[in-house]
Nucleic acid binder design. Structure first.
Length: 297
DNA sequence: GAAATTTGACCCAC
DNA sequence: GTGGGTCAAATTTC
């Protein structure tokens, strides 16, 4: 934001801080309204939803133009990018892979990573981590030192067919088993169906924030519920929660459309075998997810 | 039978 | 040497 040039860094940060506080407050209110207490009208929820969305968009705009951010494109992806995902695949998978291997053939890479914390708020005992619109295939699971829950390793199901190198790691939070830490690595380069499924309504594809910045869709962004953390070096850390109107129909439709499968693991929760661990909602159960993004490049 | 998951082994960075 | 990430064979599911 050009108005924050010169010596206005403090003002800029203060402005974002105020916006973030407002959004947090609205988010808390939304969580209450979405809680187990008697249902509130859709109109009320929609209004609140719009408030949060406005905060988010303001923050996104400010941050995008933030000259003080140490990250070139610090705004992480939002759940609403699903339908826009294909246009965001601008990265070169080969170059990423090359950089991953550091030129010496090493499997350990330093590809950009970004972490999404997803809170599964459930009323019925069902829990899981949200669909991000992509179909993942689990290729490993490991117990991580110092953590209570194992870490699951997923790769894009089109890895071989289309050479998509996107991977993600899913691990339950020690502090709150309802929170899943999902670390994405590499953007998708495949052409997975994103339209029509529940995913496109709830969760953005796991795009590297550094590359998805320019594809913000303010319309779909309205239906987000997430908390955003900035790059670890970024002075700001803001959150926003947005409604996750996971209707039963949407979830089951997605299930049928993509052959949705999940298995419950007592340690790991819902283990998704296909569309990326979406919190399957059955019957009249309603699930809310609050993703938390943190760029960890 | 095809596709996905599980799980032990292997490789590599620290 | 240790821990994290990936591979690949075995197993399971559809």
């Amino acid at each position: 934001m050009e108005n924050f040039g010169g010596d206005h860094e403090g003002e800029f940060r203060k402005l974002i801080s105020e916006l973030a506080e407002g959004r947090d407050a609205a988010a808390k209110l939304q969580m209450i309204l979405n809680g187990p207490l008697p249902a509130h009208s859709d109109h009320e929820l929609l209004l609140l939803h719009n408030v949060i969305s406005s905060y988010n968009k303001a923050l996104a705009m400010l941050n995008y133009n933030n000259p003080y951010s140490e990250s070139t494109h610090p705004v992480p992806p939002g759940p609403a990018f699903g339908t826009e995902s294909s246009s965001a695949f601008t990265g070169s998978p080969h170059s990423e892979e090359d950089s991953d291997r550091g030129g010496d053939g090493s499997r350990k890479r330093k590809a950009p990573r970004w972490t999404q914390k997803v809170q599964a708020c459930h009323e019925s005992g069902f829990e899981g981590y949200p669909d991000d619109g992509y179909i993942w295939r689990k290729y490993g699971q490991k117990d991580i030192l110092g953590t209570r829950y194992p870490r699951g390793y997923f790769r894009c199901t089109h890895r071989h067919a289309q050479g998509c190198l996107a991977t993600k790691q899913v691990q339950r939070s020690d502090e709150d088993p309802n929170i899943f830490n999902i670390t994405y690595c590499r953007n998708h380069t495949c052409n997975q169906p994103q339209t029509g499924g529940a995913a496109s309504h709830h969760q953005l594809p796991p795009q590297n924030p550094a590359e998805s910045q320019l594809s913000i869709n303010p319309i779909t962004q309205v239906s987000q519920q997430e908390t955003i953390h900035h790059h670890e070096n970024h002075p700001l850390s803001y959150h926003y929660f947005d409604d996750f109107p996971s209707t039963t129909n949407a979830a089951t439709d997605h299930h049928h459309r993509y052959g949705f499968q999940q298995h419950y693991d007592p340690n790991f929760g819902w283990n998704a075998s296909s569309p990326s661990g979406f919190g399957l909602v059955e019957g009249n159960q309603r699930a809310l997810f609050a993703p938390i993004y943190r760029l960890t490049i």
